[in-house]
Design a protein around this nucleic acid. Sequence first.
DNA 1: TACCGTGTGTCAGATAACCAACACAACTTG
DNA 2: CAAGTTGTGTTGGTTATCTGACACACGGTA
Lengths: 185, 185
Amino acid sequence: MKSDRRIRYTKKVIKESFMDLLLNRPSHKITVKEVCEKAEINRTTFYSYYDDIHSLTKEMQNDSISDIRQYLLQYSVDGDDMILYFVKILQNSFPYASKYILYDNNSKYFIRLFYECKDLILSNWLKGHVKITPIQQEWLYTFLASGCAGILRTWFMGGMKESAEEIASFLNQLIKCHDVIFDAK
Amino acid sequence: MKSDRRIRYTKKVIKESFMDLLLNRPSHKITVKEVCEKAEINRTTFYSYYDDIHSLTKEMQNDSISDIRQYLLQYSVDGDDMILYFVKILQNSFPYASKYILYDNNSKYFIRLFYECKDLILSNWLKGHVKITPIQQEWLYTFLASGCAGILRTWFMGGMKESAEEIASFLNQLIKCHDVIFDAK
DNA sequence: TACCGTGTGTCAGATAACCAACACAACTTG
DNA sequence: CAAGTTGTGTTGGTTATCTGACACACGGTA
């Protein structure tokens, strides 16, 4: 059920144009008019898909999350590398993500990211925790995901100065230390 | 008076798709259907711009000639380098040209190329021929252009085995040797 | 204050591109 | 030979996009 090629192309050029403006003219408020002129589409067309710039960035964030899901699905990384891999994706594969994630200060991005990728992450994190109940799994995941989201958000906001390895190893420690609670035997 | 963005995009993907098929599936008859499927456009749309594959390749040849004109205008090369430059354009800047030029064996391509670029080449070739009349200029250009076109066509057909330098120096000799006829003093 | 330039969001009507279906020709394959 | 298969052009009706215009909100400036 692929959408109309016209729609795909139009949305694509809108997003590319927005991204281009974002990267080449920082500290500059981006207008709908600008985006449309760069994309060579009519403003009317823009409004038939988005209410405003904000709804565009929202969709781009969704795209980004879908892309990350695809990455995770495709490579299905195991064990301790999971977090490092995750952080590296954010750092390398989506270098532009930080731009539009922060553009309208949408701090819910990382919460949603972990929510949407729950199925792909959960099995990985809880591998080997035989005694933990499904209910407990949910709560533990919520707790850990929120923590990670907070860290990543802070990392992004600060301009990602720390290396992916540092962040990943830090998060790994935090996740690992809960093993004792549920797996003490 | 730029044409509609929709038209530009549609034609662009048609040409790219055709080129792709041409490069990746040589010795294979290319159908309208194939091109449209690759380009993700409707066959009806194709027929609203082209009568058939042949009329597509014809337009691509025109594009190629326009591009070459642009090159010549942009850099305005002088003197003996002209021919070398010209041949190099054909060899390097338009590596795909030969594919669709030869696809339906349109031997008129080079004739047209020299005809369309006449203004840009003429002044260059006849530089210094003070005694030659405008009428003579026309005839001389026709003669030299036809000769060059024939050589280039043969070169293309043969797979461009000779280097651009060889061809250029050969053509330059042929052009130069007419100087004595018109400029003997 | 009033004026002006610029961006916003929306509309009706025109054009481009879409889809599904058709008749037809050029072939394979039985 | 007849029955499929595949590509060709063409049609009528639908959807996406474009154009030009409009009323409105906003900030700067005389």
